[in-house]
Design a binder for these strands. Sequence first.
DNA 1: GATGAATGAGTCTTCATTCAT
DNA 2: CATGAATGAAGACTCATTCAT
Lengths: 192, 192, 192, 192
Amino acid sequence: MPTKRQTEILEKSILLIAEKGIQGFTIRNLAKKVGVTESAIYRHFKSKVSILCTILENFNNILVEFIKKLDHVELSSLDKIEYIYKNHIQEFIKNPALVSVLFAEEIFKNEKELSLKMMNILNINQDNFEKIIECGQKKNEMRNDLDKTQLALIVLASLRLMVKKWELTRYSFSLETEGAKISHTIKTLLRK
Amino acid sequence: MPTKRQTEILEKSILLIAEKGIQGFTIRNLAKKVGVTESAIYRHFKSKVSILCTILENFNNILVEFIKKLDHVELSSLDKIEYIYKNHIQEFIKNPALVSVLFAEEIFKNEKELSLKMMNILNINQDNFEKIIECGQKKNEMRNDLDKTQLALIVLASLRLMVKKWELTRYSFSLETEGAKISHTIKTLLRK
Amino acid sequence: MPTKRQTEILEKSILLIAEKGIQGFTIRNLAKKVGVTESAIYRHFKSKVSILCTILENFNNILVEFIKKLDHVELSSLDKIEYIYKNHIQEFIKNPALVSVLFAEEIFKNEKELSLKMMNILNINQDNFEKIIECGQKKNEMRNDLDKTQLALIVLASLRLMVKKWELTRYSFSLETEGAKISHTIKTLLRK
Amino acid sequence: MPTKRQTEILEKSILLIAEKGIQGFTIRNLAKKVGVTESAIYRHFKSKVSILCTILENFNNILVEFIKKLDHVELSSLDKIEYIYKNHIQEFIKNPALVSVLFAEEIFKNEKELSLKMMNILNINQDNFEKIIECGQKKNEMRNDLDKTQLALIVLASLRLMVKKWELTRYSFSLETEGAKISHTIKTLLRK
DNA sequence: GATGAATGAGTCTTCATTCAT
DNA sequence: CATGAATGAAGACTCATTCAT
């Protein structure tokens, strides 16, 4: 159970990373943003890495939770993919700072612990798409001539690159509109 | 014309970034790798940013050159896409360190000059795919029911994510084999 | 309100400049003199320039305060000039290091902020002498045939050069004695 | 006998000091200004200090020469002082960069050799004024009630401060006009 | 005479972290 | 809970100088 301060520190960390990138994510900057001393941060987290770690863990939990719930959603496989796109995109619109953290594998290279967590999130996402596609192919809702793993990668990759471009262009286009277009294209490609 | 030392510094820089990420790309580490003093580096490049800049510029030039030559390649649009995939993948296999640098948009956030160069490379790639797809659609070699921009993004994104995963798993699978699979899948999806 | 450490740093800075000149006023040397790490200095001042800035500001404040009080001193103009000479000289004797800082306009050339502060102190001093001379000429306590601005410059210049020589000769003569002589000479020159 | 290059280096050094102060007087900057490599400088002078040394020596020689010639000038003591003022001022107008070097005792603090040379120039100047005043007092061309040493200091100090202010204000007033005023004032003060 | 490459000490400054209070 | 003071390692970069060519 995180304390209030811990939650605050995590939130402000994400904001900070979004604003200034990982290079700007320093304890000093974080402390300033939270409005406490640098040493105060260490009451709540034992190190900078542990903050990043917790952020990734939290995100991982949310993702797992979301995927669990997906099982009970009554939609065709194609619609499920569209649904995931929409859901993810809405999350990113609500909290654009997430993008910087979640798509920044590069950044966590140094710390084994972090890079494993990062890779894990990537895999969970791809596995999820894979299962949905497998199911769709079995139910004959999708084309059957292509391998589910490759398709899952394509689906995930497209979402990622679009969101990444949205961030790199400083949110210069409507992620919702473009996301809808891509998800429509993807659906059409996968359809029988 | 770069001197021998400049070339060496650029190469070692790419290697260093691949090994330790941008956070590990310090003048100190670079000097150690090159086998000279830190100050010696500054005889050859006026700043750290200028090293990164040159790396991106060089890559950009190679990319532009490659795309120029593509015009004279006698292939169908679909085969051209496959050809690009193969070519890029071979480059990455030859020089795996490149991946870290080229797919690390996050990293250059702070430096305007660098992030623009980064974005530029991304755009050149996507535009290239877009033109090929446009041409393929006109020539009726590809499906015509979907927008070229979306398709180009999907094509590019898939290449990127696969290569990224290859790097994140420390080159644990054959990029050539997986690349062939993905490019086959992509071709099948785009086919009429 | 400066903290104890801040005061100490300011004092040691002045001493350091007096000993080794501005070229020797480095954070490293300062830290050594204060007996802390270099980084510790930065807890108390945000930069080296801000240390110099504070020194000049403090001196400026003291000077302004001194001049304010002069209005309430019941002395003839000539005696006031003598009084100022004595006062300044006593300050320099108390804190010889000040000389190096205050008469070193050359040094602050690079930093706009500092050179302006420097020039300001010079002007305040000259203006002060000018006003006293103006007043003395009106009250007929001084010769009236010469311009107050020129006379003020001469009065100030003489004080400065004497003090400077005192410093350059490593305090080899009694500033008090020589100061008394000069101020006597100046008074005689200005007298009706 | 200095070579052409040596002379050039000396001249460019003075210019450089005038432009950027002593802190900007680096071998790198000097080499750039001369249009050669840094190492080339060391063909002509064995060190940076030796350049400064030569500059001061040259100036010293010129000064000594000038003073020697003064003996043969047929002027009253008061007019001689005016003549010296005029002459020095014209030199500074011709070569404003000299001011930065000559009035920057602070700067040479670290190097014994340099600071002695500096002090020497100061003394030569004051001695010269002193002798002229002594002579003037003997010939009854000047007031006799004040000590020659003090008066010499006042005469020298006034010239110095005026020129210094001229430099600090970036040559914002006519040194010739102001110099004439000061020298007139000085003459009036010294007159019987 | 001059260059190009290099060095080693030093510049200011920032970082994550610790610890006494 | 939080602060304030400190540390030591590291950051990018500059400096005067040397030396082989």
